[in-house]
Every structure is written in C-alpha cells, then in structure tokens.
C-alpha cells in the first residue's frame, strides 16, 4: 500500500507524504492513513445569539452552542479569528469535548442550535459530522458558518444533518480569492448551489473591504448570480470591514459604501438585504410584500417579531426562513 495520501475533503486536495500535515493544519498522514488532529478538541466554545452567526431567518432570538477547532482551509488576509484559524491545534488551548458532550451541553444550556463556526468547520469535518448526527437524534438543530471551500461529496454527506448554512461569499472574482484568500471562487459558488439543492436553509455573508471588493458593479453582478442560481429569497448580509490581521492598512468600510451595496443588491432583485457590523435600520427584516417591519433588531437583540407561523402578521405573506 502506498504511504502517500490524497486528501479529498477540500478543493486544495493536499497530497501528503508520511507524517506530513495538511495545509489546513488539522489532518495528518500517519503510515498511509489520514487522521484528524482536532477531533473532540475545540479551542473555542461559546453560547451566542443565533443573530451573531449571522442568521436572520433562522429561529430568531434563540441561542447557538458554538464550537470551533484550530485550522482553516483558506488564509484570508483579513481574518478576524486568525489567532485560531491560522494556528496549529497543538498551539491553541483545547478542551476535551467529545460529540455527545457537545450535544449534552447544548441541551443543558437550552440552546436550540449547535453552530460550527469561528474558524472553518470543514477542517473538523469528522467531529462536526458525528456531533450533527447525535444532535439530530435529540432534535437539536445544526448550523454551519463556512467559507464554502469544500468538495461536493463531503458537502452532500454533511447536508443530510445540516439545517442551515451561512456561507461567506468573500468576493465575486477569482483574482480576489487567489490574492487575498489563497483559494478559488468556483468551488464556493458550487457549494452554494449544492446547499440549495440539498434543501439546507442558506444565508450569505459578504464582507465589504474598501478598495478590494467594494466595486458596486461587481457587487450587483454577484447579486444577479445569486438571484439566478439560488433565488431572490436568500438573505444576504453586507458586513462592515474593520482592519485586522494582515490588512491593518485599510480603513473601516465607509457607511455609504455599505448602503450602495445594499441598493445594488435590491436592484438585482434580492428581497432580504442586511448590513452587519453596524447599527442601522438595515439590520431589521421587512416584509417583501407589504414592506411592514417584521423583525426589529438592535445588534444581536431582537426587540420585535411580527412573524407568526412563518407568515407576515400584517399581510399574511409567507416569509422565507425557518421560524420554529
């Protein structure tokens, strides 16, 4: 048997020699067998509002038991969690928290959801998969916040147990993904289409970075692609950039840029367009039919909810999402 291993989890597809660790830092070839280095060893565990993920159309005002291990499949220069995403698992402080204990802790803390988040959950695929299977048996929902850089086969297998996904669509050019993230755009678009096909509730986050991906024409083109391939009901969150990691030379995103992005998205036909990382009326949900205020938010707090049985209280229109 060959001792070389080809990892087929993400599009990078690392070819690993004996005792070589993958680019994600989370998988190792030992004697021709690939092992996870992070199974049951989260470096981050927290209880968050589901709105923080951000999910705005998925069980609003509930809490999510959130876990992450070290490692990532990309190397974004603007990463807000680079201390753990760009770290080796042996360099982070890890807990011993097996899958059944994750579910038990979530239930003890009245969390409706377990969210795989903070770093890139693809790198702890086996841990997430086993946890999600147990959670499904106990009627705890599973959600993922991902960069979408995962191959189709593992994604379809995971989708059997995933209730919702928030995918970072970081830009709409191959150049950005190549230069800024060390990846490719095409696999991320494929992931979005696959998740939609598999019936996983989908929301999209786009971090708007001054000078790098804030061109209104490209944003509109991206939104038109979303409408055509995923539908007009997919909520999109334009998130405000703040200088982090290797991009501290850039300023925070101007408010006007975010408002322009929102206008471009609505012009393209998207019905639910939000602005994140910034307080404004654009963090509220309005009915696409009668334009009445449905969910009022201040940051992560829901202050008003006018959705009943998945419908607008005012006009009765069905509101896309998972409401209870």
């Amino acid at each position: 048997m060959s001792k070389k291993v080809l990892c087929e989890l993400c599009p990078t597809e690392c070819l690993l020699e004996d005792y070589q660790v993958g680019g994600c830092r989370a998988r190792i070839n030992k004697g021709g067998v690939l092992y996870s280095l992070v199974y049951g060893k989260p470096c981050s565990v927290a209880i968050d509002p589901i709105e923080k993920k951000p999910f705005y159309h998925f069980l609003p005002a509930t809490t999510a038991f959130s876990i992450a291990t070290a490692g990532c499949v990309l190397g974004c220069k603007f990463c807000q969690n680079w201390q753990i995403s760009q770290a080796k698992p042996e360099d982070t402080d890890n807990l011993d928290l097996p899958p059944d204990e994750v579910v038990r802790q979530a239930m003890l803390n009245n969390c409706k959801t377990i969210t795989y988040t903070y770093t890139e959950p693809t790198v702890f695929y086996e841990y997430m998969y086993d946890t999600a299977k147990i959670a499904r048996n106990f009627n705890v929902k599973n959600t993922i916040h991902t960069c979408g850089y995962i191959n189709e086969k593992p994604l379809r297998e995971l989708s059997k147990y995933m209730d919702a996904a928030d995918v970072d669509l970081k830009a709409f050019t191959e150049d950005f993904y190549n230069r800024i993230c060390g990846g490719r755009l095409k696999p991320v678009l494929d992931t979005l289409v696959t998740l939609r096909q598999e019936g996983v509730w989908l929301e999209i986050t786009n971090l708007v970075i001054p000078t790098l991906n804030d061109d209104a024409k490209t944003i509109k083109k991206m939104c038109m692609w979303i409408v055509k391939n995923l539908g007009a009901d997919v909520p999109i969150h334009f998130s405000r950039f703040f200088p982090y990691y290797k991009l501290t030379n850039l300023p925070p995103t101007p408010v006007e840029t975010l408002r322009d992005a929102r206008s471009a998205a609505m012009d393209a036909g998207l019905r639910y367009v939000y602005i994140g990382n910034m307080r404004s009326e654009a963090e509220n949900t309005y009915c696409h039919h009668c334009k009445q205020l449905l969910i009022a938010r201040i940051g992560y707090a829901v202050t008003q909810n006018n959705i009943s049985g998945g419908r607008c209280k005012f006009c009765g229109a069905a509101i896309p999402g998972v409401w209870g």
Partner: peptide
C-alpha cells in the same frame, strides 16, 4: 485515540 479521517485515498501519484 486518533480519529481516522473521512474523504481521502492512497495514491502513487508524484
């Protein structure tokens, strides 16, 4: 105990 990973294969490719 180390956890065996999913989605990989042995290869002789260079």
């Amino acid at each position: 105990e180390p956890k065996k990973a999913m989605f990989w294969r042995n290869t002789d490719e260079a």
